[in-house]
Design a protein around this nucleic acid. Structure first.
Lengths: 192, 192
DNA sequence: TCCCGCCGATAGACACTGTCTACTTACGGC
DNA sequence: GCCGTAAGTAGACAGTGTCTATCGGCGGGA
């Protein structure tokens, strides 16, 4: 019952995720994944009719990983105030994006999301629901959904612009934290 | 002196930009661009040693187009207040991103930015400088650079999440404008 | 025990891609 | 008129995703 005799379907996703972390998204060739899984290049087709579907499955693992991390952090911070919990969620999100850049990029490739084979868009909905709820606690007077949407967009944009160093260049800074504070301040208001 | 006898270098960029708008980034094959330009597949190599450099040149056109549009809008709104000018800049930026999705996506492909052949990152700096200046006028009390960076990230993230319909799904909305207002409000404060 | 059928995987073909290289063509300066 | 250089051509090459024919082994029925 070692890893090697797990089902090929799962093994392909495992190998793909490793390859993604090690060499980036452009290395995620169908044939290379098959090679590293020790099967012929036609084998994946039995489980993933198309290359894009295999990539979607790998990206889906990224979404579930991110969701688990966020849930774990929120559970740990259960006793903290809502603002701190939103901050913790935001930092976890950004840690993931900056710590697993390849996976994050794959997760948000529009052709993967658009293909819709695995309902990836829907996978992030519960996470967004949590964010909406927390934002509603922090700012009960506003439209929580919209504020949460704006905050999510801000986190996503900050992660991407930071990752390809455009923001470093523009801000002349190397530390990400102050920008995160600015973002949180903008959407959540000043701390009480 | 028709378009067809312009230099091949410029024609390749023209053809590429058209193809990009018509069929999206995945259609931007080196060979297909050469085909539509009426030359052999080896011809582009004389001007763009690598496929990535041709893509970079096309993306660079996107950056200059965006810069021109923003400058034109700001010139038209010269008499407006700084907050309205920031709002106009933001809407222009988002119009570009949503109206030319293929170009926008190409412009922010990290491997293109990272390749650095054409200094694309630096191309967006003057635009960012304008934003910093305007933000400084709206909120003289804060750190304009950081607020401008957060706003830029928010615009970028909103454009991308909206484009692949994640935000529509999360917000249950079809109209982009209210979210833009929320974003502007968050970073610029309430209008006076 | 034999045989059949099916499932999982293999191997090769196909069209296509980006890159590289040898070749041809055309034009301007002497 | 000739030659050298620059621009574009054409073909080869390895690699890719997809498709199809084939093969091996295993389980169930006679």
């Amino acid at each position: 019952m070692t890893e090697s005799d797990a089902g090929l379907r799962a093994r392909l996703i495992d190998v793909g995720a490793e390859l993604l972390a090690a060499e980036g998204p452009q290395a995620l060739t169908l044939r290379e994944i098959a090679r590293r899984a020790g099967v012929s290049h036609g084998a994946p087709r039995r489980y993933f009719p198309t290359h894009l579907e295999l990539l979607s499955a790998i990206a889906r693992r990224g979404f579930t990983d991110l969701g688990e991390r966020v849930r774990a952090v929120l559970a740990r911070e259960a006793s903290a105030g809502p603002r701190d919990r939103v901050a913790a969620l935001a930092r976890t999100y950004l840690d993931f994006a900056l710590g697993s850049p390849g996976m994050y990029e794959l997760m948000f490739r529009h052709d993967i999301l658009e293909s819709g084979h695995l309902g990836l868009r829907e996978t992030s909905l519960p996470l967004f629901g949590v964010l909406v709820e927390l934002v509603g606690e922090v700012r009960p007077e506003g439209d929580a959904r919209r504020v949460a949407g704006a905050l999510w967009a801000n986190l996503h944009g900050a992660a991407q612009l930071w990752r390809w160093r455009s923001l470093q260049l523009a801000l002349g800074e190397k530390d990400f934290a102050p920008l995160v504070e600015t973002v949180l301040l903008a959407h959540l208001g000043r701390d009480r």
